[in-house]
Each structure stands twice: as C-alpha cells, then as structure tokens.
C-alpha cells in the first residue's frame, strides 16, 4: 500500500506544474486579450512577388 505515498507525490508534482503554467500564462498577458491571437494565427507570410492575385479573396 506504500506505493500510494509515491503516487500522491507524483500527482502533486504534476498538479503544481500545471498551476505554475497557469500563473505564468496570466503573468505573460495571455488572458488580457482573448480575441486578437485567434485572428493573428490565420495571417500568412507576405509573399514577395508583386500583387496580382486579387481574385483569391477570402472572407
């Protein structure tokens, strides 16, 4: 039954790691803006050729 002590220790380490991750995410401002990143991720790199393809419009 002593294995329980080890398991509890492990589970706590894991849980604390998540808590620290949460605190870090708040501190780095990830919760300040929950909209812009969702748009930003969809931007492509700017192509280096001149602009010709206006037809490829996305909504």
């Amino acid at each position: 039954m002593n294995i329980i002590f080890l398991l509890i220790g492990c589970s706590f380490c894991l849980a604390i790691a998540f808590l620290l991750a949460f605190i870090w995410s708040v501190k780095s401002g990830q919760l300040d803006d929950d909209y812009t990143p969702s748009v930003r991720i969809l931007f492509d790199e700017i192509p280096n050729k001149t602009n010709e393809d206006d037809s490829s419009k996305t909504d």
Partner: peptide
C-alpha cells in the same frame, strides 16, 4: 507590397 490587406476582408 502589402495588398494582402485587401484580400483578408
């Protein structure tokens, strides 16, 4: 070279 502005919306 920033006409992507017009293709997003």
């Amino acid at each position: 070279n920033m006409c992507a502005y017009y293709s997003l919306e």
